[in-house]
Structures are given as C-alpha cells and as structure tokens.
Amino acid sequence: METDADAGTVQVKGLRKRFGSVTALDGLSFTLTPGQVTGFVGPNGAGKSTTLRIVLGLDAADDGEALIGGRPYRALSTPLQEVGALLDAGAVHPSRRGRDHLLWLAHSHRIPVRRVDEVLEQVGLASASRRRAGGYSLGMRQRLGIAAALLGDPPVLLLDEPVNGLDPEGIRWIRGFLKSLAREGRTVLVSSHLMSELEDSADHLVVIGRGRVIADTGVRELLAAASGDRVALRTSARTEAMTLLAAAGATVAATDRDALTVSGVNAEKVVQLLAGAGVPFSEVSAHRATLEEAYMELTGDALEFAAPPVTGTEAS
C-alpha cells in the first residue's frame, strides 16, 4: 500500500545482477529521500546504469527489488508523473524534431501540449525545438533528455550522467537547476563517474564500486572525515616552525619550500605558538579536502579498470 510517507522515496533492496560471468550488482541497497540531491558515484563499470535500468523496469534483477513510492516501476500506471528519468541522451530518433520527441511522450500520459513548451523553455531548448534531433549537439540532447524527465512534473528524478557533454555554462546551469528541484521537495538522483561534478550540487552520496555500496553518507560528513583536523601553513622560516610545532606535539609535513601541513594541533593553537615564539608566517588555514580526494580514498581499492601506477623518471 502506498502511504504519504512512501511518496517520493526510492528504495533499492539487495539488487543482484549478473551478465554472463560478470557480476554487475552484488547486493546493492540504498534509499533515496525527498528534498535532497543524491550523487550516485562510482568508477566506470561499477553498476550505476544497471541499477537505474532495474529501477526503471527495463532490466530484471536476478534478486532483490527496487520500489518507487513503495511500488515497482512496472506497476505504476502513470510512470512519467511519478519518476522522470534521463538514461542515455543519445536515445532520440535523429529524424524526429526535438519537440515531437516530447510530444509523443506527453500523449502517452495525456499531458497537455503547453507543458511540452514549458519544459522546452525551462531547459533552454525552445528556439531549437523544431529542428531535427539528429542535428543537436550532445549538450542539446542532454537538455532534451532532461526536458523529457521533467515533462510529467514527477516527484522523483533519476538522471544518469546529465553533465556529460554540457558546456561550462550548461554545467553551471544544471548544478543550480538540480538544487532548485530538490528545494521544491523532489527526490533527485544524479549519477556520475566524476566526483568533482557533484562538488557543488550533491547533498548526499551513494558511492558504489564493483556492484556494492562503498559509502552512503552526507557530503559534509564525508568531507569532514577526509579533511581530518589538518592545518595548512605558509612560512618563510620553515625549519624553526617545524621544530616549534613538533615540540608542541604536532605532526608536521613539508609540502613546499615555504609550506607545511600540520595535524594534531588546531589552527588557533598554531597561530598562538608561532606568534609567541616570533616565528614569521603569512598564511594559516584549515585544510579542506576536495570531494575528489575523499572519493579517491574511498574507492582506491574498488576500481574496476584501474591503470597501473605510473613508474619511472618521467613521473613527477
């Protein structure tokens, strides 16, 4: 039974899927909740697209289930009004005009035609909507795919690599757009193989590798954990600073001719110690890990297709 509590939630429970001898999904579980952008991240081949295809009822799972508002996708009678999905931006008939692609989708749900023009406007494709989709750039096809996902005004949006092919202006646009969709109370899932793409837009992360969930965590918590309590310091008197801070119990590492990374002592204490001893310094800041660094720490041993480490003299 569907209850209000279920509306807009997506539950993935213990999904397993094999393609021949390859295990694509190995007991994958997570839950998406409304009102936030969840980044769905993992290296290429980790199982992101397979998961989305199973959620959308296109592929059958060997085991486990995926529920939208408490029901499997194929049991939804007006799916476009419950879930909007962008799977593959290239999946448009090249001879059909962009607007007509949305028109047949609208007709499948008796969505009024004015809604078609509304979403075209919303994604910035109105002026190109009467051109054939075959002439669209990848970025324009992404926008068309996003328009299709928005067509039914669904409470849940599942977007597979929506940033692919967008120009810098488009990337800025989609980040803001995703956040605004979540602010409206929608459940938004964005998959990506590049953590940096999600840096400014995701609130929550589901990180997968080899068909399993590696991390299911808030972005802030993840960053805090990866950053530790390290302090970056710039000083012209490197040796004196190192001696002084080490004596105070800190672990100090030189990162450049005039730069140090200090851990075990907070920024305030560092300033106090250096000022007290008259050691000159020009910059003290709490070190903040990037999402990319945090992600690399998490997935280091879960890469499906990792290149061997670079060795030799040319490596810097």
Binding site: R53, A91, S108
Partner: peptide
C-alpha cells in the same frame, strides 16, 4: 536509436 528505453519507461 535507443528510443526503445524511453518508450518502455513511458509505457512499462
């Protein structure tokens, strides 16, 4: 063209 996936998400 891959539109079959779009078709089957609209018409499961």
């Amino acid at each position: 063209t891959g539109t079959i996936r779009t078709t089957l998400t609209a018409i499961p």
